[in-house]
Amino acid sequence: MTLKFTEDHEWVKIDGDIATVGITAHAAEQLGDVVFVELPETGKSFGQNDDMAVVESVKAASDVYAPISGEILEVNNDIVEAPEKVNEDPAGAAWFVKIKPSDMSELDKLMDEAAYKDFIG
């Protein structure tokens, strides 16, 4: 299992040929209380760094980018129903989407956990 991070504060966890994507605890904290999440339709395909989802707090709205190219296999409707979960467990239960990656080599461009920790200082 591989865990990687983007400069836009998404995490991506690779488990076999499924990539699970969410936003980092740092991002959730910076946004403040999350009030709204919009997720893509399953079956849709995205390129790496395309806008894929939206997450909003009262004072900020952010696009969530696809950390890796591929097709959306599943989305987490729990966080659409209860957006506060993004603040409660961003690295776990509040994952956003599961993607079927089309090019695993794209992961090489992303940071590992130590590099991400350095990145956010």
Binding site: F36, E56, S57, V58, K59, A60, A61
Partner: peptide
């Protein structure tokens, strides 16, 4: 729902 609006978006 002011995240729709110009001062944020």
């Amino acid at each position: 729902l002011s995240t729709r609006e110009q001062h944020i978006r």
